[in-house]
Amino acid sequence: MRRLLAVVIVVLALASSAAAFAIDPLPFKDAAQRDRFQNLTRDLRCMVCQDESLLSSNADFAKQLRRQIFDMMQQGKSDRQIKDWLVARYSTFILYDPPLAPSTIVLWFGTPAVLVAGGIVVIVLLRRRTRPADAIAEDAGDDW
């Protein structure tokens, strides 16, 4: 039983390490650069498999862009420059963190606007309810 458990653990460990190395190993200068690369590519969309990030995707497209981003980092390009380079080719759709622009106003402010509107409705309803008892009979607003 113990041996079986050991085998299972070893198999699981191998499987997880295999998954970890499914992403092509890139020769980073140091851990800081690797972290910067991972943070950057985590926020970028793999255009082929749209719900995956460039960091996690195994698509050919993602591999190629990871390589290009890595190369740009070696050339000393900033995150901003790399993102601009990508946006010029693939539009802001490639960013998981969309910039504030006319086309994204609903995205940015839609939810807070609905929240505020809902809050106003709740406040109005609550105020009506706390009216004196004789006023409640007049109020058709709370009979549903």
Binding site: M47, F61, R89, Y90
Partner: peptide
């Protein structure tokens, strides 16, 4: 290599 295709914004 597909490198030029990236300049064209090709993704599929």
């Amino acid at each position: 290599s597909g490198d030029t295709a990236i300049d064209f914004g090709v993704y599929g």
